[in-house]
Nucleic acid binder design. Structure first.
Lengths: 136, 136
DNA sequence: TAGAGCTGGTCTCTTTTTGAGACCGCCATT
DNA sequence: AATGGCGGTCTCAAAAAGAGACCAGCTCTA
């Protein structure tokens, strides 16, 4: 990642990249995508892209995540190298989570998708309403 | 979507877009994202971006999806307005699935993410191996 | 000094989502 | 008459996610 996205591949090449691999299960692209396509991963990455946060801060920032899923999602993000976890030996030890370079490099493409969602959520809502009405 | 993505928002604005809404559940951006962030949705969208496919063709193209999940994922994509479903009254009626304009407009941002995944899957694999080794 | 609260978690239990695979009627081919 | 493709639905088991109790260690307040 040198900051610019050039040489976009053709659609069929991109699709092949998603179905590559000796057997289907270990296609590298799907392997990576699945890690950032969980229910909470994108939200946490976007939050940490702003600035590092402590565990409790993230909990308050994202009030509808359960503590269990916050722990687990952060663990998974750390394992895949997107998030750095640092423990500070304060009286009640505090833990700070921050994005690594790899995590930061994901921000741009993720932002595109979020921005697309923002631009198109009206269209999606209308489509949904029309579909449900037609199903009467 | 007029083909160009301009005026990128600041990180904090993007995060706010993901946490907007009276209560957390109906944040528009998360509502939309959740629809395209399933296990199979991105793959099917990428496949249909190439050209329309019939049900059985998609099944063969993506051999590790179960019939149940293919049915359901296509249904959800149709409901959200990404996919058009057309039934042809042939002897065994055939059903063709194709991307709508809305679905096509999603291709660009999705492609960015896939491309990022392709570029960075080595880094992710290394991070994972290092993490697992450190956990000994 | 006793109680309550904050720190970042783990553990158990229940509900929801997903996956595997059997089954369906219809029709064409063999 | 049996086989296979067509696009599904239905059932049941497994996996993932959510709710909430519990934990030790420390600090502040009454």
């Amino acid at each position: 990642m040198d900051g610019k996205i050039v040489n976009l591949k053709s659609k069929i090449e991109i699709y092949k990249a998603m179905t590559d691999g000796a057997n289907f299960a270990d296609c590298p692209v799907r392997d990576v995508i699945s890690g950032i396509n969980g229910k909470w991963s994108p939200l946490l990455v976007m939050a940490l892209a702003e600035k590092p946060y402590r565990f409790g801060e993230l909990r308050r920032l994202v009030p509808d995540i359960s503590q269990r899923m916050l722990t687990q999602t952060l663990y998974d993000l750390q394992r895949d190298g997107y998030v750095h976890r640092e423990v500070f030996p304060t009286k009640p030890p505090s833990v700070e989570y921050s994005l690594t370079d790899l995590g930061r490099s994901m921000f741009a493409p993720l932002q595109m998708l979020v921005q697309w969602a923002e631009l198109n959520h009206d269209a999606v809502r209308e489509a949904r309403a029309a579909f449900d009405a037609a199903q009467t």
